[in-house]
Simulated assay, not measured.
Amino acid sequence: MRLEDVSKVYGGGATAVTALHEVSHAFASGSFTAVMGQSGSGKTTLLQCAAGLTRPTSGTVSVAGVDVTGLSEAELAKLRGRRIGFVFQSFNLLPALTARQNIALPLRLARKGAIPDRVAELLVRARIAGLAGRRPHELSGGEQQRVAICRALVAEPDVVFADEPTGNLDSASGRDVMTLLREVVDDLGQTVILVTHDPAVAVHADRVLILSDGRIVDAIDAPTPDAIALGLAVNGRRE
């Protein structure tokens, strides 16, 4: 997918706030990118524009060769259902459904076939096959997030967006989630774009983009904790 000169301005006149400023970046298919930056840097807005959740003020966003910015709301909804997967900090599982049913839901809504095989494959990959019949309240936070990742993957999207997917998890559960995301990139060729504030999460990515004041100010390939810490420090992040 690709962003070309994407800007996002909220408000107008003297109160206008530019959240993104002419951002251009190509995300290679089968790559894992983490987006970092201080609060207000534009990282969440970048994710929302890239995923078609928010329309940019100017510029273009392309997913699988489709210009997302030119689509109607109905066309956007259809594209998100077919080509884009989402993982959020809150798991957003339906409490009345089992893990298996939550994962299968996108396929059932799209009336696609081969549901049992695809769901079973993902349950095994996420190491939660033995929990398939449990409802969300019977699962730990880490288990719920792995169910949510399987749900994001079940329709075989072109790209998966993850917004602070470990934010509500302890460190051990967070590592399990990141191991799974790393595996789906390496083994399935999935494209993953992740927003995080945590360098321990970002090191799982192939590349880290650092945003400041709505611009990409650094790109770190094969990131290490030291390289990320230096990049954030140079670009003014203090937490």
Rank of each mutant, 00 (worst) to 15 (best):
M1K: 09
R2D: 15
V6A: 05
S7I: 05
K8V: 07
K8D: 00
K8I: 03
V9P: 02
G12S: 14
A14C: 00
A14E: 14
A16V: 06
L20V: 08
E22M: 00
S24N: 07
H25F: 15
F27C: 03
F27Q: 07
F27M: 06
S29T: 13
S31E: 13
F32Y: 13
F32P: 06
V35P: 04
M36C: 01
Q38N: 13
S41T: 02
K43T: 06
T44V: 09
T44D: 04
T44W: 05
L46V: 10
Q48C: 12
R55D: 13
R55F: 11
P56C: 04
P56D: 00
T57P: 10
S58I: 05
G59E: 08
T60H: 13
D67I: 04
V68W: 07
L71V: 04
L71G: 04
L71N: 05
S72K: 06
S72C: 10
E73H: 10
A74H: 11
L76E: 10
K78T: 14
L79G: 02
L79D: 04
G85V: 12
F86T: 11
F86E: 11
N92R: 10
A96L: 12
L97P: 09
A99C: 10
I103N: 10
A104Y: 10
P106S: 10
R108G: 06
R108L: 14
L109M: 15
A110L: 13
R111G: 01
A114Y: 02
I115V: 15
R118M: 08
A120E: 15
E121T: 13
E121L: 12
V124H: 12
R125F: 09
A126Q: 06
L131N: 04
H137T: 14
E138T: 03
L139C: 04
L139G: 05
R146N: 07
R146F: 10
V147I: 14
A148S: 11
A148Q: 04
I149M: 06
R151F: 07
A155L: 01
E156D: 13
P157K: 05
D158T: 13
V159E: 05
V159L: 07
V160Q: 06
V160A: 11
E164G: 00
T166F: 08
G167L: 05
G167V: 08
S171M: 11
A172L: 14
V177T: 07
E183L: 09
E183A: 15
V184Y: 08
V184H: 05
V184T: 14
D187K: 12
G189I: 09
T191G: 11
V192Y: 07
I193K: 01
L194M: 15
A202L: 11
V203M: 02
V203H: 00
V208G: 07
V208R: 03
I210C: 03
L211N: 09
I216C: 03
V217T: 00
V217M: 00
V217E: 01
A222I: 01
P223Q: 09
T224Q: 00
I228H: 01
A229V: 04
N235F: 02
R237I: 14
R237S: 15
R238Q: 13
